[in-house]
Amino acid sequence: MLNILKKFIQKVFNDIFSHRGELKLGFYGPPNAGKTTLANKICMDWVGEEIGKVSEIAHETRKVSVKGEVEVEHDGKKLTFAIADTPGIATKIDYEDFIKSGINRAKAKQRAKEATKGVIEAIKWIDNMDVVVVVLDATKDPYSQVNITIIGNLAARDIPVLIIANKTDLKKASIKKVQAAFPQYDVVGMSAKKGKGMDEFYEALFALVG
């Protein structure tokens, strides 16, 4: 009974999310790592429009946002993706942090409420991904539990993972530390903001799913 229900939900989901032959590519990670910045870059390059808003304040993305029919060409090979930019996953959300960033109290509370829902949505969507790019801020401690939880869940579901050590334009960034924390994974260092490392990114992505 439960299985039938599960299959039904899966089917409805597949119908809205993706066309046949599209690879469902999810962008996951902690808040503020640069998921939307990177997803925007890819969408701009191949469809000419962005997928979502970027902000220096965490939890800017609070709903999963999907862009389908993104045709990417690399080394003479073509793949079509449905790109899903997801809200950053966190174990805590404090509206007072938003107030400190200059958002008024009412809006800060609203943002926190939406952010909690966003985290739940992001987690629910994991099951539907064909491949996931985990975006980490390479200036931060890679051993944070959220990173381990995300990658552990993807591994448990046999979903191929590419790890991005983002923000390499910053002095504090260390690709090595990220690689050391996740030795069994491909780690690509890049600066999504500056558009540096895009070739290596596509190379690794195509190697993973191509």
Binding site: T91, K92, A112, T116, I120, V146, N153
Partner: peptide, 28 residues
């Protein structure tokens, strides 16, 4: 916890967050 239980814990935590409970710190 298993990875799936970790995400369940995060989901349950998100549902409980209010002005007094800000969430958790977790280490497995």
């Amino acid at each position: 916890l298993k990875p799936e239980e970790e995400t369940e814990l995060i989901k349950a935590t998100m549902e409980k967050i209010n002005k007094d409970f800000k969430g958790i710190e977790l280490a497995v």
